[in-house]
Computed example of a mutant assay.
Amino acid sequence: MKIAFDAKRFFHNTSGLGNYSRDLVRILSRYAPDNEYLLLNKNKSERGKEILSYPNVQFIETSKGNFSRQLKMGKDAQKHGADIFHGLSGELPLKWDSKPIKKVVTIHDLIFVRYPQYYSFFDRRIHFWKFKKAAEMADKIIAISEQTKRDIVQYLKIPESKIDVIYQGCHQAFKEQQSPEFMQAVKTQYTLPERFILNVGTIEDRKNLLSVVKAICGTAIPLVVVGRKTQYYKKIERFIKKNKMEKQVLFLEGVSMDELAAIYKLADIFVYPSFFEGFGIPVIEALFSRTVVVTSNTSCLPEAGGKDSVYIDPHNDLDMKAKLIFIWDNESERRRREDKGFDFVQKFNDEPIAKELMNFYQKII
């Protein structure tokens, strides 16, 4: 089987969609090595170069020109004999020739419909049109959670039978045990507290970091935040200064994947009170790191966290505060939940996901 991928995000996105794209191709190339995997894009980058070294993965330089991704990439995949074209980020090419090819699209979330206040009018219209068109054109759709599947049915009016849920995993670094020397080096480099709670993700309204800062206000619990700052950060900064919390909250940027994996393992608690997610990869990363998770009881987050994570109302700072303090003060409860969470997260390992993907592709063919 020859499978072509829209590799724009594979090569040029550092997080979210890029990580999904790279992990999907990596695990397929390892666990389904008899297939050929074609990465189509106008150019490549250093990202994912170790995956390109696999003998069954090939970069295909696609046609140049304006809108070539929409108008020419599909035909390029057909020209190279692909059996399946997989759009990894909610989009499919608009133009194809008459040669047979099956079309698959992964849809991660429809947050732009659920939370329009986070997007401009123009972006909402463009996103909706692209996702709707891709969903209608695709032979089958992959949703990364049951929540996303429900949203595709509700908002894009796509039959449920056309959609399969296949969860995503996370980077291998979170599943490995770093050496004590490396762990200590990371702790020293970033001046991490002896004990701390951790939050990871872009610092934006939807991720709801301000609620975490409010929840720990008046406690002695240190918070470490790893993520890119947006305009929303200024709200948090004002609250921190007003309440003299500068020494309690540490912000980190430019952290490598291996360093981030170490920071997860060093944390006592991972807190992720997002209002809405398509899936919530940081929750999976924390569970693989054997770090107890406190997250929202909304959207897909209970799917990612399992029954032994701690769930809070993201609109209720007092609920979060009480549960954080309880877990912080109870080592035996933390250990119990860490072990149970680690058992649960094995379903998101590479091999079972690769098997699901191959079953999905083979059904289409």
Rank of each mutant, 00 (worst) to 15 (best):
V213W: 09
A215W: 11
I216E: 04
I216K: 09
C217K: 15
C217D: 15
G218Q: 07
I221D: 06
I221P: 03
I221K: 09
P222D: 05
P222L: 02
P222Y: 04
L223D: 04
V224W: 09
V225I: 01
V225E: 03
V225K: 03
V226A: 05
V226Q: 01
V226I: 06
G227R: 03
R228V: 08
R228P: 01
R228T: 12
K229L: 01
K229W: 01
T230N: 10
T230Q: 09
T230A: 10
Y232K: 03
Y233I: 00
Y233M: 04
K235Y: 12
I236N: 04
I236H: 04
I236A: 05
E237L: 09
R238N: 14
F239C: 04
I240D: 08
K241W: 09
K241Y: 12
K241T: 11
K242W: 14
K242N: 13
K242H: 15
K244M: 07
M245H: 06
M245D: 03
E246M: 12
K247S: 14
Q248V: 07
Q248L: 10
V249N: 06
V249L: 06
L250V: 12
L250N: 14
F251S: 04
F251V: 02
L252Q: 02
L252T: 03
G254L: 02
G254C: 00
G254N: 02
V255G: 03
S256R: 01
S256T: 07
M257V: 14
M257Q: 15
L260V: 09
A261P: 07
A261V: 08
A262E: 11
A262I: 03
A262V: 06
A262S: 11
I263L: 13
Y264M: 02
Y264E: 10
Y264C: 05
Y264Q: 01
K265H: 08
K265M: 10
K265G: 11
L266C: 05
A267M: 12
A267T: 07
D268P: 00
D268M: 06
I269Y: 10
I269N: 08
F270R: 00
V271A: 08
Y272D: 15
P273S: 11
P273Y: 15
P273W: 14
F276C: 13
F276W: 03
E277S: 02
E277P: 00
E277F: 07
G278F: 05
G278C: 03
F279M: 12
F279Q: 13
G280R: 03
I281Q: 10
V283N: 13
V283D: 14
E285I: 00
A286P: 02
A286E: 10
L287A: 10
L287W: 11
L287K: 02
S289N: 06
R290C: 13
T291M: 06
V292G: 05
V293E: 04
V294Q: 05
V294D: 10
N297K: 08
S299E: 07
S299M: 07
S299A: 14
C300R: 08
L301E: 11
L301R: 08
P302N: 05
P302F: 09
P302M: 06
E303W: 12
A304V: 00
A304H: 09
K307Q: 15
K307A: 14
K307T: 13
D308C: 07
S309C: 09
V310L: 12
V310M: 09
V310F: 10
Y311G: 01
Y311D: 06
Y311Q: 02
I312P: 05
I312W: 11
P314R: 00
N316M: 04
N316T: 00
N316L: 06
D317A: 11
L318V: 13
